[in-house]
Write a protein that binds this DNA or RNA. Sequence first.
DNA 1: AACAAGGTCAACCGCTTCTGC
DNA 2: AGCAGAAGCGGTTGACCTTGT
Length: 339
Amino acid sequence: MGHRCCSKQKVKRGLWSPEEDEKLVKYITTQGHGSWSSVPKFAGLKRCGKSCRLRWINYLRPELKRGSFSAQEEQIIIDVHRILGNRWAQIAKHLPGRTDNEVKNFWNSCIKKKLMAQGLDPKTHNLIPSHQRAANKVACNISQSNQQPFSIITLDSKMKDVSMEISPPILTLPSPYPSTSSSQPPLLDQATTSLPLPVSGYQNPGAIWNVNAQNSQVSSIFPCLSSIETTLISSSSSSSVNPTGFGLLDENCFWSGNNIVEPFEAAKIFEGMQSQVQENQPNKICEAQTIDKINKGVQDSMDASFDTSSYDLDFVDSTLLSGSMCRDLSSMDDIAWNF
DNA sequence: AACAAGGTCAACCGCTTCTGC
DNA sequence: AGCAGAAGCGGTTGACCTTGT
């Protein structure tokens, strides 16, 4: 069964010959592709337009980077995948010269196995409970020092076996929850997690706002974040948390009041906050008025039932990943929040 | 040397989304 | 608003390559 676009004509399938490549390159470089469905006809190819498009995008484009992935590219893939999941096209946008197909293949053939070998679920990037690991016959006796350079989550020496204490996908970060409130997700005893990505969950920013020492710490950790972002992170990591706010639960989940929300939902909430901030504080100094607006934005966003249908993934790219794309990877792996 | 098993990656398939009418 | 065609996307396949026995 051929493509619908070319079901009426006899088309060649399978690997492309050098002659076919030459025809396609010649045509597109001189004429542009225009409508892909008409490309094979004008280029003199017995292929369907879809196949031509794929061949051009994945193999013939001059800007394509060939060869194996660098360690940095690998880390970027892991970082972005953790937030976006199997959105290969989105991930590939962060890797100039790489295609979604290439990234997907690299993930499936290489990264996935590396993560599993470290006892990490490649889907959630969380630790796989030890009994599941045993069931899956995945090697997991990796020493802490051997977790580099893929230490998505590293464990403190105090922690013997986090996987026995938690149920995936939630691996709780220590700080955002006031210990007295009954509305928060359960804390993970004795666990210490490191945070390789810029934290992207935010609590109600009313409690702590001005740039302070803690904030400076964050900005040194995430040098590429704006001051507003580091301030938000800073307050999110603070122990004096507004219990009605919105914050980070783990690298895959966020909390909002009594609810746990997915990263996309959380990001959407922050989108409202961010636009308010951008409109109102060009100097990145948060004023009371802005705080009110942000608070309102958060509340409005929450009230909107987290409709994800119109969600802008580019926002996730630009906002959630603003730090990860240019951060110092090695230093990130050393960061840990302890109880 | 021959074969099997596993890995890699280009290409395909089918579904969804976008765009123009 | 509804439709059709085009484009985009992620999952899957299968040919080829590498490695182990």
